[in-house]
Design a protein around this nucleic acid. Structure first.
Length: 551
DNA sequence: ATTTTTTGACCGTTA
DNA sequence: CTAACGGTCAAAAAA
């Protein structure tokens, strides 16, 4: 199915923290921090969900670009982060995400699994959520903060691979995303999740208020975040947690995709669970739900699958990397169910959706039934890792690579991470953490990519920057997330499953997204970022401009 | 005027 | 059987 690209946020949750502040996009001198940027190809999948948008004209591979900044893959690969990232990538989505991990990714799981195992090694540090689901898809979930984020991103990526993964947005927040099924389709729920997250992030309030916050975006957001339009049909306070849970349905015509989003009082998204799969491509950036509705449902019939993605604990903005280790993941989260045909999706959803959620989970292998499952899912990282792998393997998930950079200015606390979407190498998410305490030095050539700068550099906020990879020129796949940018680089075939090797390959592989895809990505990204709404906005703007340009 | 969110009530499942 | 829960519905409200 789709590929996931998740990035990885991996372990480095730090990134997250970064995201918060990432202020400006300014180009500063960055030293490598330790980590790596890696680009990884994600996914396999490739077919992007069919987006109404434009399909990728070219092979994705073409799109993939390697972020200039990134250094040799090797490092990435080798580095734990990297690995983690992979894992992330692999799993994503919900749709996200795999978290994006994702479950969505359906894919052949086997290989991926194997891969995952490999990653597990890394896992120690990272948390991953395991997915249990059937081999084929694993939906991954992430949970742990960082991981989760990554997963999400990945998932998203995967989904679309067209989209760039969401990488990160979430950085700051850690959210777990679970997907119940892997969406066969490229349509992944992830996106959504991410969106929410984003929204959430913004919203400080719990419950309704949060929504309010969300609201701002909301309508648009719906789409924006993950690229899909969502209609909220309910909210409830779940007993287990303080956080109110919101229920959303994909507004697309017959799309069965649903998602549950829990937000903390702060408004941060603590958990997102996607259920089902989208049976249609992501709507274009514009949201128009209407249009969506209009669009034929693509039901691919079967595609749909249900996948739930959970995003968990977003909050922590500053999750430290450390957190990662601690990350818990829900096991269930992922499931990878094979994509079920979702055919049913449409119908069923309404009525027995609730059941489904639960049931599906079960079916899918999620242990817990229903949403609860999701919450709890804290789980072992290892599992997550696996998921990731799955993602990768299956979906060809993209893996995102991160490098980490520190501002070279003395005393300057600013750090940035650069993540690349697995599927879409081009897409790079850069997350800045902290504010520069000095003027902007002459920009270095950022290696290869041109940087788009967000309109504003915010000191405070995370400013996502978009960067295009040189390659990107062709398509601008990149999306920037508030936190990060994604650069897509490699054109790998979307579909082509990638092997870990691929990941390793220096150039990250990205999918290229189509513009649209990019868009999607953006959304996702935002979503992920969700945590910080600000960032999103900025990003969006940024992205938009960016895209427009490209387009 | 349209669309989406809010919110209380209802329904099915589970303990 | 009842209560508790989670999920969904749908009218009302808000944007």
């Amino acid at each position: 199915m789709t590929s996931f690209s998740d990035l990885l946020a991996n372990g480095d949750n730090s990134m997250e923290s970064i995201s918060q502040d990432r202020s400006s996009t300014q180009t500063l001198n960055w030293g490598y921090s330790d980590r790596f940027n890696v680009e990884i190809p994600k996914f396999k999948s490739v077919q992007p969900p069919s987006l109404p948008l434009s399909p990728p004209p070219l092979s994705p591979s073409s799109y993939w670009a390697i972020p200039s900044g990134l250094s040799p893959t090797d490092q990435f690969l080798s580095s734990p982060l990297f690995s983690s990232s992979f894992s992330n990538l692999a799993s994503p989505t919900t749709g996200a995400f795999a978290g994006q991990a994702v479950p969505w990714m359906s894919g052949s799981g086997h290989d991926s699994q194997l891969e995952m195992k490999a990653e597990e090694k890394f896992s120690s540090d990272f948390t991953f959520q395991p997915q249990t689901k059937p081999a084929t898809m694993s939906s991954s979930i992430f949970q742990s903060s960082s991981t989760v984020e990554e997963h999400l991103k990945r998932q998203e990526d995967t989904w679309n691979f067209t989209k760039p993964s969401n990488i990160q947005a979430d950085l700051s927040s850690k959210v777990e995303v679970k997907s119940e099924f892997a969406p066969t389709n490229s349509f992944a729920p992830e996106m959504a999740t991410s969106q929410e997250k984003l929204q959430n992030s913004t919203a400080p309030l719990p419950g309704h208020k949060q929504y309010a916050q969300q609201v701002p975006y909301s309508r648009e957001q719906g789409r924006t975040d993950d690229g899909y339009n969502w209609r909220k049909y309910g909210q409830k306070q779940v007993k287990g947690s303080e956080n109110p849970r919101s229920y959303y349905k994909c507004s697309y015509r017959n799309c069965p995709m649903k998602k549950k989003v829990e937000r903390s009082l702060d408004g941060q998204i603590t958990e997102i669970v996607y259920k089902g799969s989208h049976n249609h491509p992501k709507p274009q950036s514009n949201r128009r739900s209407a249009s969506q509705s209009i669009q034929p449902s693509c039901t691919n019939s079967g595609i749909s699958d249900q996948s739930e993605v959970t995003l968990g604990h977003t909050q922590m903005e500053s999750v430290s990397m450390q957190d990662d280790s601690s990350v818990s993941v829900g096991e269930d989260e992922f499931d990878q169910r094979s994509p079920m045909s979702n055919a049913g999706g449409d119908d069923d959803e309404n009525e027995s959706e609730a059941k489904r959620w639960k049931g599906e989970n079960e079916n899918e292998g999620f242990p817990a039934s229903g949403s609860r499952t999701v919450r709890e899912p804290r789980v072992v990282v290892k599992q997550l890792v696996k998921l990731t792998f799955w993602m990768m393997g299956i979906d060809g998930g993209s893996m995102d690579k991160k490098s980490y950079y520190k501002c070279t200015s003395i005393g300057c606390p600013v750090r940035k991470h650069v993540e690349r979407a697995a599927h879409d190498t081009r897409a790079v998410i850069t997350t800045y953490e902290g504010k520069h305490n000095h003027d902007v030095p002459a920009a270095r050539g950022s290696g290869g990519y041109a940087v788009n700068r967000p309109p504003s550099n915010n000191n405070s906020g995370n400013v996502p920057m978009l960067i295009r990879p040189s390659a990107m020129a062709t398509h601008s796949n990149q999306t920037s997330y508030s936190n990060s940018f994604q650069n897509t680089r490699l054109p790998t075939g979307n579909q082509a499953p990638y092997t870990p090797l691929m990941l390793q390959s220096p150039g990250g592989v990205g999918f290229s997204g189509y513009r649209n895809q990019n868009y999607a990505y953006l959304d996702q990204t935002q979503f992920s970022e969700g945590v910080f709404s600000r960032a999103k906005e900025e990003r969006n703007t940024f992205l938009e401009s960016f895209f427009s340009e490209d387009c």
